[in-house]
């Protein structure tokens, strides 16, 4: 199957020709298939925020291309505009971009810019609100009357309502407590289920990424350090830790046990699989 989006050798240089010149990302290549859930991991300064702004044409690469269904999104003004709507981008702390008088009108902002009909806008707003779990009553409130978690979800709905085929979220759970984090993950899952869209989930938490993603891309200093399914990526846990990433506590536990000569797979990254692994070993009596 042809990929939905392909990034080819993307390089972006800040302030070229000045003493502050710096390559934020260099030669990044990857592709995303329809309906895929991808985790993009990297610490601050790894270039992940710069990278995602290339995917819908907000930033133009210094060299390299972004192809959406095989078409270069920077080839023409129309192509860029189409990409803007097909690739939805949720920024960090998205609640700070709410501005309308009511939640309904704020969610409708994107669809309106797409030039959709009044009825279509209404149905999309309702659908998006349902995906993020906002009830009918809160749609009529001012966005500034919502609680912190609700604001974040209303902002997500604003992008959901554009029904992007690829939804890119930059640290969507930053600053939230465990309950809030779970709520946001549930919203993303619900959007994915009802639309079948692909998701690119940017985070610095290996733990969150590993739990939900089909595939992981790890960035370091503006370049791809490794990519693959979670098991493949976590088999290189030692390198990941060297790159300054936080691997889950169970992974560190299993690395420690493996280093003590216990025959465990060190590429475990969830409590569930850790539990299975330990029981298997205990029952098997291999120690």
């Amino acid at each position: 199957m042809a990929p939905l989006l392909t990034a080819e050798d993307l390089t972006y240089i800040y302030s070229p020709g000045t003493p502050f010149e710096k390559a934020a990302i260099k030669d990044i290549s990857f592709s995303i298939s329809k309906g895929e859930f991808i985790g993009l991991i990297g610490h601050t300064g790894s270039g992940k925020s710069t990278l995602v702004q290339h995917l819908n044409g907000l930033l133009k690469p210094s060299s390299g291309r972004v192809l959406l269904d095989g078409e270069d999104i920077n080839a023409s003004k129309e192509a860029s505009r189409r990409a803007r709507f097909r690739v939805g981008l949720v920024f960090q702390y998205p609640e700070y971009q709410l501005f309308e008088e009511t939640v309904f009108r704020d969610i409708a902002f994107g669809p309106k810019n797409m030039g959709l009909s009044e009825n279509e806008i209404k149905s999309r707003v309702r659908e998006a609100a349902a995906q993020v779990g906002l009830d009918e009553r809160s749609l009529e409130l001012s966005p500034f009357e919502l609680s912190g978690g609700q604001k974040r979800r209303a902002a997500l709905a604003g992008v959901f309502a554009m029904r992007p085929e690829l939804l890119v979220l930059d640290e969507p759970m930053a600053g939230l407590d465990p309950v809030g984090r779970e709520e946001i993950l549930a919203c993303i899952e619900s959007f994915r289920e009802s639309t079948g869209s692909a998701i690119l989930f940017v985070t610095h938490s290996m733990e969150d990424a590993a739990r939900v993603s089909d595939r992981l891309i790890v960035l370091k200093d503006g370049a791809v350090l490794t990519q693959g399914n979670p098991r493949e990526v976590f088999s290189q846990s030692a390198e990941l830790m060297k790159a300054g990433l936080d691997v889950p506590q169970v992974t560190r536990l299993f690395m420690e046990l493996a280093s003590r000569g216990i025959p465990l797979s060190p590429s475990v990254y969830t409590v569930e699989s850790a539990l299975e692994e330990i029981i298997r070993l205990k029952e098997g009596g291999q120690c």
């Binding site: 506590q249 169970v250 536990l253 409590v271 850790a274 539990l275 029981i279």
Partner: peptide, 20 residues
């Protein structure tokens, strides 16, 4: 209380539930 214990504790707790 909708909090999560550290994963090490969670793992031991689950083992405990399995009867170990």
């Amino acid at each position: 209380l909708s909090l999560l214990p550290p994963q090490t504790v969670e793992l031991l707790w689950r083992l405990d539930k399995k009867g170990y």
